[in-house]
Design a protein around this nucleic acid. Sequence first.
DNA 1: TTGGAACCTGGACTTTGTCTAATTGGATTT
DNA 2: AAATCCAATTAGACAAAGTCCAGGTTCCAA
Lengths: 139, 139
Amino acid sequence: MNLEPSTRESVAEMLRTRGITPTHQRIEIALVLLEKRWHPSADQILAAVNVRCAETSKATVYNTLKLFLDKGLVRELIVDPNKVFYDSNTSVHHHFYDVVSGEITDIAAAGVRVDGLPPLPAGMVPAGIDIIVRTRPGL
Amino acid sequence: MNLEPSTRESVAEMLRTRGITPTHQRIEIALVLLEKRWHPSADQILAAVNVRCAETSKATVYNTLKLFLDKGLVRELIVDPNKVFYDSNTSVHHHFYDVVSGEITDIAAAGVRVDGLPPLPAGMVPAGIDIIVRTRPGL
DNA sequence: TTGGAACCTGGACTTTGTCTAATTGGATTT
DNA sequence: AAATCCAATTAGACAAAGTCCAGGTTCCAA
Ligand SMILES: [Mn+2]
Ligand SMILES: [Mn+2]
Ligand SMILES: [Zn+2]
Ligand SMILES: [Zn+2]
């Protein structure tokens, strides 16, 4: 997903492009995911979608996130033992993770090079490399 | 933790070295963690410790894992959305993760080089780099 | 022998996420 | 416009992983 000025209509169009019927709830969730560069959990998304009044259910948030994941609109970040975070930036990149505050920051993939990895286990095909640089507030 | 022929006594000694009073349960759990090169979840550890008869409780397994983690005997692997895995190999290394079977394989750190990472966010200090190479059974 | 500290335990509880059966709503047909 | 249909949504029950606590056990030192 790209970070551009997102009107409800442009988001609907983008969903259609990817073969997703743009319902009210799906548009709201997509808007929340795109509204800024962040890495929200399902809970945060639910809360953000329902700031004004409850219009979307927990089940729909989970259903929609799984749908978006499936259609490649969103990426899961497994970084915290307690919850999954969602990343609307689907281009290849990596993350800083502040183990104290839980804050996540993007690392652009351009320039990052990993050398010397051994060959994959027999019969395996690559499905992505995650680099997580864990950090802590300085001494 | 090191992978050596582990008698109950040698494990007890090792725990003492790290300032951990070696109780029956803690020794059993350490033995399970060391018995082979694997990356068990808390559940698997509980099961393994209790193969013969139930001698250790869930609470103790979680308490002990947290204690071991604290004392640097064990490392957490955050790789699966559903459960934490524990790694008795505390030397710096990385992992293959088969997203289908869930199998985890070590990648020796020797030879792996990461270049071009941006500077850490202001005021942050490094707390470790995790590289997870996700794989899938071939086409 | 007794007192205390550390340790262990069952089970209640919390959090995150899944599932299902019932309902809604919007497009399509008539 | 009314009826129809089906995908999407929903409340709430459920499941899995993990935490917490109050009471019980063990062990050691005095
Ligand atoms: Mn958890
Ligand atoms: Mn979960
Ligand atoms: Zn990101
Ligand atoms: Zn490992």
